[in-house]
C-alpha cells in the first residue's frame, strides 16, 4: 500500500485556494452545468470509435477533462465525491491490466499478441470475437487515459 499514498490534507499544496470552490457564481454554475455534458460526449466519442473518428484515447481525454473541470471549479475538496483521490491510480492500473489480459489471453490460446479471434469466449463467431475484443481493449485504454490524466493533475497540484 505504500506505493499509493492516501490523500493527506497536510501535504505540500501548490495553492491553497484551489481546495475551496470558486467564489464566482458564473464560473460555478457554468462548470456544474456543462461537466455532465462533457462526460456524455466523452462516452459518445468512445462508443463511436468503431464507426467514426474517435476511440479510446479521445474519449478518455474528454472524460478526464470533464472531471478536471469539476476539480478546477468546485475545488479539490468538494470534487472528491465525483472522483476520489484513492481511486485514480488504482483504476488506471486496472485499465492497463484489462488491455494486457486481452492481449495475453490470445497468446495463451496459441496466437499472437492481441489476436482477437482466438479469445477464449465460447459460442461466438470470429467476427464477433474481434468486435468484442476491440471493445474490451478500448475500454482498457479509456479507463487508463481518464484516470491517469486526473492523477497527473492531482500530483502536480500536490493536494
Amino acid at each position: 500500500m505504500s506505493e499509493f499514498p492516501e490523500h493527506d490534507p497536510k501535504d505540500h499544496c501548490l495553492d491553497e485556494s484551489l481546495k475551496e470552490p470558486t467564489d464566482s457564481l458564473i464560473v460555478h454554475a457554468t462548470a456544474r452545468g456543462i461537466a455532465p455534458f462533457i462526460l456524455l460526449i466523452g462516452l459518445y466519442v468512445f462508443f463511436h470509435g468503431h464507426y467514426s473518428p474517435g476511440g479510446g484515447f479521445q474519449g478518455g481525454v474528454l472524460l478526464a477533462v470533464g472531471f478536471l473541470l469539476l476539480r478546477l471549479s468546485l475545488g479539490v475538496r468538494l470534487s472528491q465525491i465525483v472522483m476520489p483521490h484513492r481511486l485514480t491510480l488504482r483504476a488506471s492500473a486496472i485499465g492497463a491490466l484489462l488491455f494486457v489480459a486481452v492481449g495475453l489471453s490470445a497468446v495463451i490460446m496459441g496466437g499472437n499478441f492481441l489476436d482477437y479471434h482466438l479469445l477464449p469466449i465460447p459460442g461466438l463467431a470470429p467476427e464477433y470475437l474481434r468486435y468484442f475484443g476491440i471493445l474490451l481493449v478500448e475500454v482498457g485504454v479509456t479507463v487508463t487515459v481518464t484516470f491517469t490524466l486526473v492523477a497527473i493533475y492531482d500530483e502536480l497540484l500536490g493536494c
Binding site: 464566482s24 458564473i26 464560473v27 457554468t30 452545468g33 456543462i34 455534458f37
Partner: peptide
C-alpha cells in the same frame, strides 16, 4: 450552444 456558453465564461474568468 456549447461555444455560446463556454467562450464568454472563459474570458470573464480571465479578466476577473
Amino acid at each position: 450552444v456549447f461555444v455560446a456558453i463556454t467562450s464568454p465564461v472563459s474570458s470573464h474568468q480571465l479578466a476577473r
